[in-house]
Amino acid sequence: MAKAKSTKPAGKGAGKPAGKPAGKEDVEDLLQMYEQMVRIREFEDKVNELYTTAKMPGLAHLYIGEEAIAVGVCEALNSDDYITSTHRGHGHCIAKGAAVDIMFAELLGKAAGYCGGKGGSMHIADQANGNLGANAIVGGSAGIAAGAAFSAKRLGTGQVAVCFFGEGALGQGLLYETMNMAQLWKLPVIFVCENNMYNEYTHYNETAAGTLAGRAEAFGIHTEEIDGQDIRVVNEAAKRLVERARKGEGPSFLICNTYRYHGHHVGDIDRAYYRPKEEEQEWQQRDPITILADWIIGQKLSDQSVLDHIQADVKSEVARGAEFALNAPFPDPSEVNTNVYA
């Protein structure tokens, strides 16, 4: 394994949020985004705890550090807009409006979960909020997202679809087939690449030739590369791209540079062989929740006490949600062969 290159967190990707003063509505939006990021952070911390205390079966891929992307993008969507998600999908699910108690139930394989316990962490779907499902095949949902956009266009509903994926998916051919068709047919789909720099345990410099942006630009797809740690940047970009898509201007590619604080999955603890501690510490200096909190306080849009209150409320909501799931019943054995066919 070659040593990781390009480890600087800041300055990668353009896009600065406009410096205009925030109005009342903006403040509410900012506080909503703050709350949603905190909800993901608290949820994932609890998942980590459940997993490491052997209360959660299977695998967990934590989204901590990348919260600004899911929330910044989903806050630019309507609830009936579609998303497709990844194995690292808890953040997308929450950002699209899922309730933490029903999510915990799914992660613990309980009957009350979003999928009746049949999907789990890597396949959680929340159709009512437009979440067409997490996908454990890297890049596997590109076609599904484009298909949802195809439906929206054909049926004239005005919906858009967002395909979330990590930079590891850039190695998958399906993504490029899909980008090609999306641009040919001007489908309202936004390809959001969360570049956390590591394809599992391998730096993307070792797996991706050329530039990331160049991949979509080759199809003539509108492409932007931004700082994925600053939610105001992410949200403004997402709003732009959603508007383009709704106006019939076709697909776009949004590269969000970010960092995964934890390992590839919860059990990935010894990481020094693939990424240096200093890099991890450096990125945590640009924490998405802190960046937004600092902006809110710095601009005097709200008080620390308000943020603290949000944090405390979310923390207890998450604790209650986990408790609910831990006490909830498992599916009845008779469920094993239901839902195989519609």
Partner: peptide, 28 residues
């Protein structure tokens, strides 16, 4: 041509697109 659609030679792409369209109200 909007309902009988020539595609690129991209079998996984058109199949995946069909899956997503089927999930969201079409019958591909």
């Amino acid at each position: 041509p909007d309902r009988v659609i020539d595609s690129p030679i991209s079998e996984p792409g058109i199949t995946g697109l069909g899956v997503g369209a089927a999930m969201t109200g079409m019958r591909p």
